[in-house]
Design a protein around this nucleic acid. Structure first.
Length: 469
RNA sequence: GCUCCCUUCGUCUAGCGGUUAGGACGCGGCCCUCUCAAGGCUGAAACACGAGUUCGAUUCUCGUAGGGAGCGCCA
């Protein structure tokens, strides 16, 4: 049997991080087994579905490179098929018309709740033979009253449900549109889905869907219900926890592989391994090893992983994602050194591409923003002469390379009777405006001769003016 | 309320009857060092509770407590 899984989001908002994890596990399962992965848009709720949300889903999956073999299918385009299957169920007696109004249903539910019962449809229209004039009926599925339904869940194990606890679900609304439950079942059947991997909020719906899918004559798929992802405080993940929209992670400068790597470790592990390439994820993923308990989203660990990926990447491969970050920081990429060189110098001291761009701002802005406290501390009159000597030597340097720059700084320090660090830090402040940057030779090389000489000259006059103690 | 699910360091997790309960993030310390990082070493930090089963429970069973989900003509 060829494995076929699907990701079936409803386009009522952006693609959130929990959805991505579901998509990832479903995709991994398919890829691991050499099967197929389908994208299906569940837009039966026309009111809340938007094209913008569909676009965000497609774009998010594309960014993460979670590729699908079929789709996107749209439930809104399959109405005829649902109507056809509804008719079949009605004819076979597996479904029936229900004329109860919403008001009646609501008040009965209220009574049941008041009595401490599980609010559920009482099945009274099962026996009805004649239509009720003036009422447009819904179609309900006749769920068995007795027996148990066993869900052999891929992640939960065996879960039993008493059929008597299950009520008759609505398949088709009074306006003729299919409900989510019906759409899912018909689609999974038609599309030949063999493994349904989804959030565990659907576990309770599973036995009823199994009955429906069997009544329709489809083979019942295997199910795997994934635990939720919570916010760092243990509450349901929401906007106040920071980014929940995947595309915001791109804007924040995270790499897609890092995000996927982080997500795959939420609820799943392979021994002590933390870093997984895509190929390793596919090869090692085992849905049977997925945890049953919910986990919290920890941005700190994501950042660490992102840095691991930054360090491990070839700088050139990050350029395309880096340039937009430079622009977003209000900087002009053309006013700085080669992007690959900046990435090379910074990738092990940045957690995201965004902060990489921000920390490198002095390479682009001329003159750089000066940190006043750093200036006061490091650019004192005592450093005037060494700085001046260094400026002279650098101006005479005919090879602007890391090695010769390092030699120039070192010899200047020696000749000035000071240690390398005593000179290095003032130079750093002079040319970057701050106290933090890559090694001084790398920094000077990156900045280039013009900027370095200009900035040193400024510092030389500043320290020699007598206005700084 | 009813049904179902979950419970190992702060967090993500390994463990699948006998372990000094391991790793990772974060946090502290030390080393390295021109700053910041990175890297190396290192420290603190967990089996929710109570009964069983067993020679022996983190591990198996049942309760309790605490979390979560579902109970819509939403998905």
């Amino acid at each position: 049997m060829t494995v076929k899984t699907r990701f079936a989001p409803s386009p009522t908002g952006f693609l959130h991080i929990g959805g991505v994890r579901t998509a990832l596990f479903s995709w991994l399962y398919a890829r691991h087994h050499g099967g197929q992965f389908v994208l299906r848009i569940e837009d039966t709720d026309r009111e809340r579905s938007t094209q913008a949300a569909v676009d965000a889903i497609v774009e998010g999956l594309a960014w993460l490179q979670l590729d699908y073999d079929e789709g996107p299918y749209y439930q809104s385009q399959r109405s005829d098929r649902y109507a056809e299957q509804a008719e079949r169920l009605l004819k076979s007696g597996a479904a029936y018309h229900c004329y109860c109004t919403r008001e009646e249903l609501d008040s009965r539910r209220a009574e049941q709740t008041a009595r401490g019962e599980n609010p559920r449809y009482d099945g009274r229209c099962r026996q009805r033979t004649a239509p009720v004039p003036g009422v447009q009926p819904v179609l309900r599925f006749r769920t068995p009253d007795t027996g148990v339904t066993i869900v052999d869940d891929l992640v939960r194990g065996r879960v039993e449900f008493q059929n008597a606890e299950l009520d008759d679900l609505i398949l088709v609304r009074s306006d003729g549109t299919p409900t989510f439950h019906f759409g899912v079942v018909v689609d999974d059947g038609d599309m030949g889905i063999t493994h349904v991997i989804r959030g565990d909020d659907h576990l309770n719906n599973t036995p009823r869907q199994m009955h429906m899918i069997a009544a329709l004559g489809y083979p019942v798929p295997a199910y795997g219900h994934l635990p939720m992802i919570l916010g760092s405080d243990g509450a349901k993940l929401s906007k106040r926890h920071g980014a929940v929209n995947v595309l915001e992670y791109r804007e924040e400068g995270f790499l897609p592989d890092a995000l996927l790597n982080y997500l795959v470790r939420l609820g799943w592990a392979h021994g002590d391994q933390e870093v997984f390439s895509r190929e390793e994820m596919i090869r090692l993923f085992d849905i049977g090893a997925v945890n049953a308990s919910a986990s919290r989203f920890d941005t700190e660990k994501l950042k660490w992983l992102n840095q691991q990926y930054l360090k491990g990447s070839v700088p050139e491969s990050l350029v395309a994602d880096f340039l937009p970050q430079v622009r977003r920081a209000g900087l002009d990429p053309d006013s700085g050194p080669s992007p690959a060189a900046v990435i090379e110098a910074y990738r092990e001291r940045a957690t995201t591409l965004k902060d990489l761009a921000e920390s490198a701002a002095y390479l682009y802005v001329d003159p750089p923003t000066m940190d006043e406290a750093a200036v006061a501390r490091h650019l004192k009159s005592a450093i005037h002469a060494p700085l001046s000597l260094l400026a002279t030597r650098l101006a005479a340097l005919d090879n602007w390379s890391r090695e010769s720059l390092h030699a120039a700084v070192a010899s200047t320090a020696t000749d000035s009777g000071m240690g390398f660090g005593k000179l290095g830090q003032p130079v750093r402040v002079a040319v970057t405006g701050g106290t933090v940057s890559p090694p001084i030779d790398v920094t000077l090389e990156l900045l280039g001769r013009d900027k370095v000489l200009r900035r040193l000259a400024t510092a030389v006059s500043l320290t020699g003016s007598g206005t700084v103690a």
